[in-house]
Design a protein around this nucleic acid. Structure first.
Length: 285
DNA sequence: ATTTATGTTTACAG
DNA sequence: CCTGTAAACATAAA
């Protein structure tokens, strides 16, 4: 589930395995998944990998950058003789034989080392950009939620989007980068704020609460490796740890973890499935 | 056998 | 400027 903590985890883990390695071959199985020229990447080393928003940024030795957006179902899987390091959407491809029917791009790193880009629904992409294009691309994104977003920035921004539901606002990448459906629900539950509350109705204290909880939950998720799994080829069942800490996401029908007596409900906000406790998170009047 | 939901973002209609 | 919907696509669950 690639939101900020998952993409961060993938970036850290792939950096360790891939930094310094040269791309010796490229095989694009789905042309729409790769935007760029083969000569942009083949023959060049991977200098570093980092994250911005929900995007992975590979810096190459020729001064170009390779950006990956995993969207809903993208995965990056590194395989060598002894290890398999994976990140992204959690499905059986994590342990399946590679390449398979969902493999869209294969990067040959030589010496039996391979990086696979798998993406079941083909929404994700890999694009080669110059430094100028990278800068341009990210200008549209809002600030990172780590470290904590400035409260007055949020309030100023909310002034222009008065009638936006707070959940939609939190997931808007132009406002803040990296928060998706899961962490928006979790942040609002921890803040005891109903996801449909209009941003114009939020108090200073509530904005502070949101920024604090977003920071705390995202940090926790990163420390748990998000929902990303990293292990050896044969080791099934070793999941990233954040699932165990989710209070409301995909907990529809279960009792509220605050033991308030409420039951977690699922509604739709901004077109997305939304989970909350109707007792802890009061409906806007 | 159909319909519905899915972690994301963009384009477009109103 | 704003908001809501569909669409890019495949699969599992209902």
């Amino acid at each position: 589930m690639p939101e900020l903590p998952e993409v961060e985890t993938i970036a850290i883990q792939l950096h360790v395995s891939l930094a310094g390695k040269k791309i010796v071959g490229l095989n694009v199985l789905n042309p729409k998944s790769f935007v760029g020229k083969e000569t942009d990447v083949v023959g060049h080393k991977i200098i570093s990998i980092h994250r911005r928003a929900k995007v992975l940024v590979f810096e190459l030795s020729n001064g170009k950058f390779m950006l990956f957006h995993l969207k809903m179902t993208g995965q990056l899987i590194y395989v060598d003789n002894s290890r398999r390091i994976v990140g992204g959407h959690a499905d059986h491809d994590w342990h399946a034989v590679l390449p398979n029917q969902h493999t869209r791009i294969i990067f040959d790193l030589g010496k039996d080392q391979t990086l696979f880009f798998n993406d079941m629904r083909k929404f994700g992409w890999c694009k080669v950009m110059t430094i100028a294009e990278v800068g341009e691309y990210f200008t549209k994104y809002g600030p990172e939620p780590l470290p904590k977003v400035d409260i007055s920035y949020l309030e100023t921004r909310a002034l222009r989007m008065k009638s936006s539901a707070i959940k939609k606002f939190l997931m808007d990448q132009n406002v803040i980068s990296g928060i998706g459906n899961i962490y928006a629900d979790e942040t609002l539950f921890a803040s005891r704020i109903h996801p449909k509350r209009l941003v114009s109705s939020l108090t200073d204290a509530e904005w502070k609460c949101i920024a604090d909880n977003a920071e705390r939950i995202l940090k926790l998720a990163i420390s748990k490796g998000g929902t990303t799994d990293s292990d050896y080829v044969n080791a099934y069942g070793k999941k990233g740890g954040m699932q165990d800490y989710l209070a409301v996401y995909h907990h529809t029908g279960e009792p509220c973890p605050n033991k308030c007596g409420g039951v977690i409900e699922r509604i739709v906000v901004g077109g997305r499935g939304t989970h909350f406790c109707p007792s802890c998170q009061k409906e806007p009047s």
